[in-house]
Design a binder for these strands. Structure first.
Lengths: 239, 239
DNA sequence: CTAGAAACGTGATGTCCGTCACACAGGGTT
DNA sequence: AACCCTGTGTGACGGACATCACGTTTCTAG
C-alpha cells in the first residue's frame, strides 16, 4: 500500500478503528457505505492549503490524520489563527452547506490524511441519510461554540497576558493535563503563531513568556512547558 | 384575540405569511404540522431575557417578531453584543443540538413574538423530519458565518475607528441602503451599546462620531445618520 | 561543519484608547 | 417648577502594547 508523506493511510471508513470516537464518522452502515462511494481518500504534505477564505465551496474535507491550521487573514497580511483542527473534524462544512464562500483558510501543519467529498455529492448524501444530516448539525454546533469562545477571548479580555493565560489553560484541558498538579504542554507553535492565535504581536508573546518564567508561573524544558503555578495562571484570566 | 405588549400575534405557522422568506420556517406541510403541535407561541415585553449564557439548554426560540440582543458577558460585567437577531432566526439552536450550555445571552429589545419548542420535542422532531434537520444545518452555518465575521472584526482591526466604520457599512448593506449615494441609518442603539458591539468604550464611540462629523463623513439628523462620504468610510476599514 | 535562515530576546519610542471626572442636554415624573 | 435619570460631549492622564531596530540563539540544509 502506498504511504505518501510517511502516512499510514486508512483505506476505508468501513474498517477504520477510530470511527466510534469521532463525532461525524460514527454513522450507520448504510450511510457509511454511501459515504465510502463518494469520498476521495487523499493525502497532503505539511504546509498544504486545503482551501482559502473567499473561495467558492468545492466540498468538505474530513480530517482523518494530522493537524490543520484554520486562520483568517486581513488585506494587510495580518493573520489570526482560529483553531488547530484535530482528526475527526470536518472542514469546509458550513460553507458547503450554505453555499457561501469558505470563511477561513485551512492549511496542514502535519502530513495529513483527508477524505474529500464534492459539494453536490455531499448535499445529495445528506438528503438521503438523515442521520448524517444530524451529525452535520452537531458538528456545526461544535464549530459555532468554538467560534463563540474565540469571540469571548478576543473581545472580553483586558490584556494580552489574560489571553495567553486562557490559551495555556485551554491547552491543558485539551490534553487531559488539566487535573494534574503541574501540567505539561508540548509547545508545537512558534511565538509568532501563538501571537496570531491571541491577536497580539510576536514580541509581546516573547515578553509575556519571559515574565511568566521570571514569576515562576511556568518553566520551559526544551519544547515542553511546565505549568508550575496553575492558580496564578488562572488568576490572570479573571483580573 | 389577545395582543399582549401591543403585538399582533401570528397564531399558527400554517397560515403565517412571512414563512417563505424565512430560512427555517419554510418547511413542507407535514413537518410544519408536526412543528405546530410541539411549539408554544409566546410573547415577551421589551427587556425580557429568553436565556442566559451558561444555562443548560431548555429548547429553541424561533423569533417571529421583534428584535433580540445576543451578547456574552465577562465576570466583571463587561459585555459584548454579538448581534441583533431579526425575525426568522432560531435562537438557542446550537446549544439545543449539542446539549451544551447556551453560549450567549438573549434579551429582547422590542416586544417579541417567539415560538418556543422544548429540547426533547425538538430533537424528536428533527429525527422524524429530515428536511427540518437540513434547515437546522443551514441556520447553524449562517450563525457560524456571522461568528467568523465577528472574530475578523475584533481580531484583525487595528483601531476602534476601523471597527466602527465596518459596523456602519454593515448596517448599510443590511438595510439595502448600501447602493445609495448617501445611505441613511436609523440608529436604534446608544453609544454604550455600539461600544459593546465593537468592543470599545462608550467615550471612544462618542469621540469617533464627533470626529466623523467634523470630517464631514457622516451627519446626524435626529436619530438618523446620513453617510455623506461612503468611500472615506470604506477607506477607514482597510488602513 | 559551516552558512544562512528562522526563531527568539530585549531596549527605546510613540500612540491609541481605557478610565476618571465632570458638565450639559433632553424627557419623564411628581 | 424642581427633580431625576439616562444619554452625550470633552478634557486630562497613564498604561498597555505595536512597531522598529538590532543582537543572540537554535535549527536546517548543503
Amino acid at each position: 500500500m502506498l504511504s505518501p508523506y510517511g502516512l499510514d493511510i486508512v483505506e476505508s471508513c468501513l474498517t477504520c478503528k477510530m470511527r466510534v470516537e469521532r463525532l461525524f464518522c460514527d454513522l450507520p452502515n448504510a450511510a457509511l457505505q454511501a459515504f465510502e462511494n463518494i469520498k476521495y481518500a487523499t493525502a497532503y504534505p505539511k504546509g498544504a492549503v486545503l482551501f482559502v477564505e473567499g473561495q467558492a465551496p468545492r466540498g468538505i474535507f474530513v480530517l482523518c490524520k494530522g493537524k490543520v491550521k484554520l486562520s483568517i487573514c486581513a488585506s494587510d497580511g495580518k493573520t489570526l489563527i482560529l483553531k488547530i483542527a484535530e482528526p475527526g473534524e470536518v472542514l469546509g462544512l458550513s460553507a458547503s452547506v450554505s453555499g457561501k464562500a469558505y470563511e477561513l483558510t485551512a492549511e496542514t501543519i502535519d502530513p495529513c490524511q483527508v477524505n474529500f467529498v464534492k459539494r453536490e455529492d455531499f448535499l445529495r448524501f445528506l438528503r438521503d441519510h438523515s442521520e448524517a444530516c444530524f451529525k452535520v448539525a452537531e458538528q456545526l454546533s461544535e464549530k459555532y461554540n468554538a467560534a463563540c469562545h474565540e469571540v469571548r477571548s478576543l473581545g472580553l479580555s483586558h490584556s494580552a497576558a489574560e489571553k495567553l493565560a486562557k490559551l495555556l489553560l485551554e491547552w491543558c484541558s485539551k490534553n487531559g493535563e488539566a487535573a494534574k498538579q503541574e501540567p505539561r504542554l508540548k509547545i508545537a507553535l512558534t511565538h509568532e503563531e501563538i501571537a496570531q492565535m491571541i491577536g497580539t504581536s510576536r514580541e509581546t508573546v516573547t515578553r509575556l513568556f519571559a515574565d511568566l518564567k521570571k514569576r515562576q508561573i511556568v518553566q520551559s524544558k526544551g519544547s515542553t512547558l511546565i505549568i508550575r503555578n496553575k492558580s496564578a495562571l488562572r488568576h490572570l484570566t479573571v483580573s
